[in-house]
Design a protein around this nucleic acid. Sequence first.
DNA 1: GCTTAGGCTTTG
Length: 352
Amino acid sequence: SALIPAKYVYSRLDDLEVGTRVNVYGVVVFFKQPFKSSGTDYCSSLKITDQSNQRIGCNIFLSKLEEHPKIFQVGDIIRMHRVKVCRFNDSVSLINTFGFSAVTFDGSKGEPVEPRTSCQTIHFDEEDQRMVEQLRAWSFNQALLPTAPSVTLSTVQPSAYFDLSCQLLAKAPLDSSCTLLRVWDGTKCPHPLLKVLVDPEMTEGPSSFSPEQENLIANVLVYDNHVEVAEQLKPGDFLRIYNVRAVLGSSKVPGLAGTQTLEQDHLAFHLHRGTAYGRGIRVLPQTSPTVQELKSSHTVFNKHSFAQTTLGSGYCNGTFLLLLLLRKSQLEYCHNCWDYETSAIILLLFLL
DNA sequence: GCTTAGGCTTTG
């Protein structure tokens, strides 16, 4: 009867028989955010392991992005129902089949066991609770979770590849294959940050910020396949940008008909084309520990909250810009500097 | 309509 709850049996990863359809639990040791395949679906590519120490590759094809497993970092735990065991070359891999479902969990010992899923009605019982806790304990002993503190704008080393957790403030397409994401994480980068000149008309979100804010904002250039993902992002979103590269030195920036000059010795951030090394962008939910941490440990999100920096309309907008302009002119009078940003503010004042 | 990808020796 449909009223009898399903009892799921989970296969160990060293006990997968090619051709069968199984349910599995595993710790994520590698993953790519869903990307467009050359077929009709998005593909999530990941590798998992369990107490058997086998490492099994999985490919999940689903047309709807929201149905893909919500994997945020290596060490996350994933449960998959109805995957087919395949053989590719000489190794066993898993692929989703009809009725597939995936649920993920934070992999840290002691964290509450909260299933992450887009599905409203998931099966989750005491056995699942136990499975997650056992995998967490095992994974902790195997040191499968990243232990080093995450890299921030204040600790990033030039020429490093790293995962950046941040808030998106504004974005602008620079050309057909490159989009600028203006982000901050609440920390101050010790290196001067690359400035990018963009057409305010093309910018989503504020097109200028106070000088104090500008000092905290990193410009991330995302290329090719990431442009499409960037289009879906909204200013205010919390993001993790995977395998972003910090580049110190001169940077050629596309846009404004190629007029942007090289800026020497500024730190630029690039998300290169492709999905190698897990390159990609993910929106983090408000409930994620990372977002909670960003909000609580860095007062910048409260002091200069996004709502306050977002330009409204009419009178308030004009007042905000006027104050911004006055503050800018005070700050810059001694430098005898009247930059593009100031000109843009004046232009906007006239338009309002 | 029943494939798609099958990490990875990055770099505008």
